[in-house]
Design a protein around this nucleic acid. Structure first.
Length: 522
DNA sequence: TTAGGGTTAG
């Protein structure tokens, strides 16, 4: 397949410059209107002509009417024009954008309604910024093939960005090589992006090739360039090499910064070497770097993964002492980690702290937290004091209109049932079903058992019948057994008989039989 | 000239 960045009609010879012919260059920076156009427009280059005031323009498109001009005054300055174009592109629905571009390019004023010419490089850049790399590439092809645009350094850099954004480093590399062959020098940012595009795919060979080329052609790598490589090495598990690179940087001209340290630390954390990551953190402090919250968060995650969330908790204190404020991610990471390792109480304390610090706790987090509290409380048995906390959070979710997930409902209902709060359990079952969830059988059995334990046998029975009618009860026999057993235990043999009869009537033969005591039998 | 590159969670 031909690559769109080099259309066959592209006047390549003209780009073989170190320095372009003067006349050409004149056009280059402003209008980029080359090739032969319609006779009518030859006097005025297609895209650079000035136009009449906007009021006299009759043929305004529907889009223009619908979307009033952004309040920007486009001047020739590239930055302003790019920003203006980005805003305009964003006002157009995605599927209308190709058509909108055609319009922009065919309108005599370049569609920007001012005296300024439309700089096609700006347009391409605007497309990239509006997250339209494909459109930028196809526009580039058609511009080139129509002879409207002869690419310069900036055009190529924009193309490189497009391909990187699309996750196509090889395509980007081809543009880069083409630039190098033609003596055009991309900036260090562009080359870094290219190298990073390889890193993100774990293709370190490609990344280092780009790095070598940049050094060869005299572009000095920046700290960002190194950081991308460091991160790439970690990504493919080559953490030792990443560490070596960091050490090399300490003695080299480009010193490591907090990003470098964080990247290597993350690498170590991801392979279960959080303690070494911690050592790096201290080393960074020793170098006078001021740590970011991300650095700490990385370590929190590492400790939590390793099953040592308590270590993370200690670091939370330390970071505050060092005047680094925790953020949402810090709290979320720790809460998740603590819950994962069964430290529900500690998680709850972190949650309170998070709330006190003014952070919003999202739906998912609340669900996870409530479930964690319920699980721990159920495990701890009767002595557990967590029911109250779980209940409080659960009602808070409802007050705040946060969606309760079905598993959360299930655990809360079980906990209510076990803790002799059957009425609450019933309310929640109703609510859960009202939201279209189907309680699990085990949940329903917990409810029945709970009602029995509280002596609400009639209620248990009618609950059972109701659930059956709702089609919720495939394992009915178990529930009837629970009821019969409970009636037996309480010496209510006639009620047990009653249940047994109902079960039979409904086509279930319970394993448990009503038990009459001696006195009752006689 | 103009834009643009690097760090954290589930």
């Amino acid at each position: 397949m031909p690559t769109p960045y080099l259309p066959s009609s592209l006047p390549l010879h003209q780009t073989h410059l170190p320095s372009p012919p003067p006349l050409y260059h004149q056009h280059f920076s402003s209008i980029r209107t080359h090739g032969v156009h319609h006779k009518k427009t030859q006097q005025k280059p297609l895209l650079s002509c000035s136009i009449q005031p906007r009021t006299t323009q009759i043929n305004r498109t529907a889009e223009e009417v619908q979307h009033p001009e952004p309040n920007v005054n486009p001047r020739r300055s590239g930055r302003v024009q790019v920003r203006y174009l980005v805003e305009r592109i964003r006002t157009v629905p995605k599927h209308d954008r190709p058509e909108f571009l055609d319009l922009l390019m065919t309108q005599r004023d370049g569609g920007i309604g001012t005296d300024d010419s439309l700089d096609l490089n700006n347009l391409l850049m605007a497309l990239v910024l509006a997250d339209e790399p494909d459109l930028a590439l196809s526009s580039f092809s058609s511009m080139s093939s129509k002879g409207l645009l002869v690419p310069d350094s900036w055009t190529y850099s924009t193309m490189i960005r497009c391909y990187c954004k699309k996750g196509q480093p090889d395509e980007a590399k081809r543009v880069f090589d083409h630039m190098v062959e033609n003596g055009l020098s991309p900036t260090v940012a562009t080359v870094t992006e290219l190298s990073n595009s390889y890193c993100r795919k774990g293709r370190m060979k490609g990344a280092f090739e780009v790095f070598d080329t940049m050094v060869r052609i005299g572009i000095s790598p920046s700290v960002q360039t190194y950081n991308c490589l460091v991160k790439g090495l970690c990504y493919v598990g080559r953490v030792e090499e990443a560490l070596e690179m960091l050490k090399g940087m300490r003695n080299g001209p480009v010193k490591p910064d907090v990003y470098t340290y964080t990247a290597v630390m993350d690498g170590f954390c991801k392979v279960g070497r959080s303690d070494e990551a911690r050592e790096l953190l201290e080393e960074a402090v020793g170098m006078g770097l001021s740590l970011s919250v991300v650095t700490y968060n990385t370590l929190f995650d590492g400790y939590c993964r390793e099953g040592r969330p308590g270590k993370g908790l200690g670091m939370l204190r330390q970071m505050k002492e060092r005047n680094c404020l925790p953020d949402c991610v810090s709290y979320r990471t720790l809460i998740h980690g603590l819950l994962k390792w069964g430290k529900a109480r500690a998680a709850l304390r972190v949650y309170w702290e998070m709330e006190d610090s003014g952070f919003e706790v999202d739906e998912r987090m609340m669900n996870v937290l409530v479930r964690g509290l319920c699980r721990t409380s159920l495990k701890e048995g009767n002595g557990s004091d967590l029911l109250e906390d779980a209940g409080q959070l659960f009602s808070k979710m409802q007050i705040q209109n946060l969606a309760v997930e079905d598993d959360t409902y299930g655990l809360v209902i079980s906990l209510f049932s076990v803790k002799k709060k059957s009425e609450e359990a019933l309310v929640s079952v109703r609510k859960m079903m009202g939201e279209g969830f189907h309680p699990r059988i085990i949940t329903l059995e917990d409810v029945v058992r709970g009602l029995c334990r509280e002596g609400k046998l009639e209620k248990a029975l009618s609950f059972l019948v109701l659930m059956e009618e709702e089609g919720m009860y495939p394992r009915r026999r178990v529930a009837y057994n629970i009821l019969i057993e409970e009636f037996n235990r309480q010496g209510m043999a006639f009620s047990a008989c009653n249940v047994y009869g109902i079960a039979l009537k409904r086509g279930v033969i319970p394993e448990k039989k009503p038990k009459f005591r001696e006195t009752e039998k006689s």
